[in-house]
Design a protein around this nucleic acid. Structure first.
Length: 699
DNA sequence: GGTTGGTTATTTTAGACAGCATGTC
DNA sequence: CTAAAATAACCAACC
């Protein structure tokens, strides 16, 4: 059986109907193989295959057949919120068969109860890990787990959460989906699943090495080669592909490089659909959460058919760019690795511009990217339905590198997946999570035997961890959580974050300034990172309105982290002092996406600081952090807190209304005319309505 | 004295998950 | 341990 015909599938007509609507007549070889291996009978599988080989459909068929066999609920887990909503939208198709699909992640609500209405719930690893600590009934009923992008197990930061989710999902039925890995047998046997490995792709991939030495040439792994004209390899190659009607995705190892590469490519002349591009440009101009210089740069590039794409850009900007590329208006995107791991955005050709990446931990040391990372990037090559063949090229400096690089990235299998649970921070957090759902020490210990990490190492971490959690007040008797421990588990903060908050606040009286609190929170393991320059450190100290709880450390690495946290504190301080967004961005050299993510994290941490203080009965600290949290959420001074409760009123409109004498939601209702004159008829009316609603319809 | 232009030394460097409260999922 | 580009600093020639 090589490719199963949909009409031959042993499924109900409704399933065939959904597939037919999507235009699927025949299942591809990967999908067919999964079915052959027992997918529809609920067989546990670990499926490893290249990006874009149709794994999502396999998961859908697995889920539907599971539910039809009498399964209670299926959970689909991904590592990214963007993927979660992408899958959610896809799965909506199954509502045709009356399956209810729900979604939850940090982007959405936290009210778990309503999730019991759904047959399929799409979520992230962290969210699921967090939900498990509360143990809602609907989650206990869940009996089928799809673990998507399972190779995230290998990620230093996120991997431990993937592992901890897998440990629990293992007790139920599961389906794990992963990019190609070299130890799928080991992983599969750990998951009690059968490994299914294929290398099939929807569009064949041609891989090559681009040497930009004296002459520019691409040497493909099939032995063929092409000479290109010019001095810059990336430019020459891009010109060729776009000239032949294709699109190119160029990956670079820094934001700056992505941007300068974009400007260079913009000097090439492409054939463009001017009218549509202008429409796209005006859509980009309308994006609200972006900086003005980001917009003007991108619009200028857009008119040349080029855009850059990295995490410094806000979600809104990235959405417009991705859409423009999908519609083939944008010919070239130059990007950092964001685009390799995120949503599906294929191009005819992928250029891997750098195989080295800076590693802060060892000064001056350049790490070579992993084979897996290369596969993630090259896997974006080839648009199904548009390109008969995808092409990925790696840029190297000279002939000598070419051979070595080709051997490593094109001809060798990717690295094996390893457990990343082997550190105190990750393991103690894992232990706290286990204890919070299952209170006996014996059951916690037995669960720790289910991890992928080496058993001898596990033993040590379990003993030390239980001791540490007890000594630091998370556990009381056995592994029973204290009030403090319970709170920390619920907040989903790292136990070391909680310990920092506890230790620092226990030694300090309440401070009449935001900075020490923000700095302390930013300095925890959960705090956001800011890159700081050598010359920046002194400025930071000078511009801080007051002192931090701690002194500047002597040791270099610690001092760096101190200053990084100080920068975060100052950024957030400006944010809640209502400094203009553009001013914050240029003052600190941030992108709109950076600011968003800093605020988001500090929002969560200030709330956590507030809750931890409450749990420890430190009321004066708690009061300060509650106020801080509310101000961080909306980016306003205290006096605006009442106004911004009204949906649609943020820091800008709030300030405008306030300065014009409208200081409470009630004031808006009393003088709707003034609101409309300040904000415009349409928005004004909506806001007055919202104001009326939140104060309970009192008019 | 100030500007310009070229060379050398120094500096910089990817990403993105989580709580809660309300009211669309 | 396996880098490369941007930028700052420096210096000499010139108006």
């Amino acid at each position: 059986m090589n490719s199963v015909d949909v009409s031959d599938l042993p499924v109900e007509d409704g399933v065939r109907e959904v597939l037919r609507k999507r235009g699927i007549v025949t299942l591809n070889p990967v999908q067919s193989e999964a079915i052959e291996k027992g997918l529809l009978e609920g067989k546990r599988l670990l499926l490893t295959s290249p990006t874009g080989s149709g794994k999502t459909l396999i998961a859908e068929l697995g889920i539907i057949s599971h539910l039809r066999r009498g399964g209670a609920r299926a959970i689909y887990v991904t590592p990214l919120r963007a993927l979660t909503s992408e899958k959610y939208n896809t799965f909506k198709d199954w509502e045709l068969l009356n399956f209810k699909v729900g979604i939850t992640s940090g982007d959405y609500d936290t009210d778990d109860a309503f999730l019991s209405r759904y047959d399929i719930v799409v979520t992230t690893y962290e969210k699921l890990d967090s939900l498990w600590r509360h143990g809602p009934k609907w989650l206990k009923e869940a009996d089928y787990f799809v673990l998507d992008e399972f190779h995230y197990l290998n990620d230093g930061k996120r991997g431990p959460v993937v592992e901890s989710v897998a440990v629990r999902a293992k007790r139920r039925n599961l389906l794990a989906l992963s990019a190609t890995i070299s130890n799928s047998r080991d992983i599969a046997s750990w998951l009690n699943a059968e490994p299914v490995t294929t290398n099939w792709r929807p569009v064949p991939l041609k891989e090559g090495i681009l040497v930009a030495d004296k002459r520019i040439a691409v040497t493909y792994s099939d032995g063929t080669s092409v000479q290109l004209k010019g001095t810059d390899g990336i430019l020459a190659y891009t010109r060729k592909v776009v000239g032949e009607g294709g699109q190119v995705l160029v990956f670079r190892n820094s934001r700056k490089m992505a941007e300068t590469t974009a400007w260079k490519i913009a000097e090439l002349e492409f054939n463009l659909k001017k009218k549509e591009i202008e429409e796209l440009a005006s859509r980009l101009e309308e994006v609200e959460d972006a900086g003005s210089s980001e917009k003007s740069d991108l619009i200028e590039l857009l008119r040349k058919g080029v855009a850059f794409h990295h995490a410094g850009l806000s979600k809104g900007l990235r959405d417009v760019i991705e859409d423009g590329f999908r519609r083939r208006l944008i010919k070239v995107i130059t990007a950092t690795p964001t685009l390799a791991a995120g949503v599906n955005l294929p191009a005819r050709a992928v250029v891997v511009g750098d195989i080295y990446r800076f590693n802060r931990k060892i000064l001056g040391y350049q790490e070579e990217i992993s084979v897996m990372e290369y596969k993630q990037m090259s896997g974006r090559a080839g648009r199904p339905g548009f390109d008969s063949e995808g092409e990925a090229v790696i840029v190297v400096r000279n002939k000598r590198d070419a051979e070595r690089v080709a051997k490593k990235y094109i001809l060798s299998p990717p690295e094996p997946l390893e457990s990343k649970l082997g550190n105190e921070s990750a393991f103690y957090s894992f232990l706290l999570g286990l204890a919070s759902e299952d209170a006996t020490e014996e059951s916690v210990r037995s669960m720790t035997n289910e991890v992928f990490l080496d058993k001898e190492i596990v033993k040590t971490y379990v003993e030390n961890g239980i001791l540490w959690l007890r000594e630091n007040g998370f556990f009381g008797e056995g592994v029973k959580l204290t009030k403090f421990g319970r709170k920390v588990a619920d907040l989903y903060i790292n136990p070391f974050t909680a310990k920092t908050i506890k230790d620092v606040l226990s030694m300090s009286g309440p401070e009449n300034c935001d900075i020490p609190y923000l700095h302390m929170l930013a300095l925890t393991p959960d705090g956001p990172l800011a890159s700081i320059g050598k010359a920046e450190e002194e400025d930071l100290l000078d511009s801080s309105p007051c002192a931090t709880f701690m002194e500047v450390p002597d040791e270099e690495e610690e001092a760096y982290q101190y200053f990084s946290a100080l920068k975060i504190a100052l950024v957030v301080h400006d944010w809640i002092e209502e400094v203009e967004e553009d001013a914050i961005l240029s003052k600190y050299g941030l992108g709109s996406g950076d600011l968003r993510s800093i605020v988001e994290t500090m929002d969560w941490l200030t709330y956590s600081g507030y809750q931890v203080s409450l749990a420890l009965d430190w009321e004066s600290h708690a009061e300060i952090m509650l106020k801080l949290n509310k101000r961080v959420s909306d980016g306003v001074k205290e006096e605006l807190l009442d106004l911004v409760r009204v949906p649609g009123v943020g820091r800008k409109r709030g300030r405008l209304l306030y300065e014009n004498g409208l200081r409470k939601p009630e004031d808006l209702i009393m003088d709707p005319g003034k609101v409309k004159s300040l904000l415009g008829d349409k928005i004004g009316e909506r806001i007055v309505k919202e104001a009326a609603r939140i104060i309970g319809g009192v008019l």
